[in-house]
């Protein structure tokens, strides 16, 4: 067999596979291509493809990066970046196969009480990096660790949405895993907070069931 042609074929197969992964994890791939290109070949060697699907190959790459132990070296923020990006991609894939969800119910002024919860498919992730700085055409070689921030990933029509949350908002969402009954807020800023969270899909609202 012609070794040169086999290598060419291997290169073509790998390029096609990486193209699929980049379609799902574009920011992660830009970071790796720019700052840790050896990681791509290490991935190809360690994780031969088990499926032709984009999501499956992206998941393999995500798992590989999370299990990576520093050789070859990679930016310190890469694991958090791929975690957030894959969560958004997975939420997008899941939403595309469902019927379109109705728009979020607003807070009805007629309600004296209502029930609220965080959507069951909401994912909350943590990071110490300002990952928004990495989701650009030219990601930095490193990011400084800062205060811990929470990231919410919400499936939605047309693609998942990612929100960078303040700590108290994240804590609130963690407390709202089950439906909780609340009195309708009197104060405008409290009402505005509930409506704002509902409009972004971070909480679901429903009237209290009649007795």
């Amino acid at each position: 067999m012609d070794g040169g042609r086999l290598r060419t074929l291997g290169r073509l197969i790998l390029a096609k596979r990486l193209g699929k992964i980049a379609a799902v994890l574009p920011a992660t791939c830009r970071c790796v291509n720019r700052h840790a290109p050896a990681l791509m070949q290490a991935f190809a060697t360690a994780c031969p493809p088990s499926s032709l699907g984009r999501q499956d190959n992206a998941r393999q790459f995500h798992d590989f990066i999370l299990g990576h132990r520093g050789d070859p070296p990679a930016p310190g923020y890469l694991a958090d970046l791929v975690r957030v990006e894959y969560a958004a991609a997975a939420a997008t894939f899941a939403a595309r196969d469902q019927p379109p969800a109705p728009p979020p119910a607003p807070l009805d002024p007629a309600w004296t009480a209502f029930e609220v919860r965080a959507p069951p498919d909401l994912r909350l992730l943590e990071t110490e990096f300002d990952l928004q700085r990495a989701m650009v055409d030219s990601p930095p070689a490193e990011l400084e660790r800062g205060r811990r921030r929470q990231v919410a990933v919400v499936p939605g029509a047309g693609g998942a949405r990612v929100f960078w949350l303040e700590a108290e908002t994240a804590k609130l969402l963690l407390d709202l895993r089950e439906w909780i009954r609340m009195k309708a807020p009197d104060q405008e800023d409290a009402r505005w907070t509930v409506e704002s969270l509902a409009a972004r899909g971070l909480v679901e609202l429903r009237p209290c069931a009649s007795v």
């Binding site: 596979r17 499926s51 032709l52």
Partner: peptide
Amino acid sequence: FTKVPGLDLAQ
């Protein structure tokens, strides 16, 4: 052929 059990080259 494109695959064998456990490995799919999609080529």
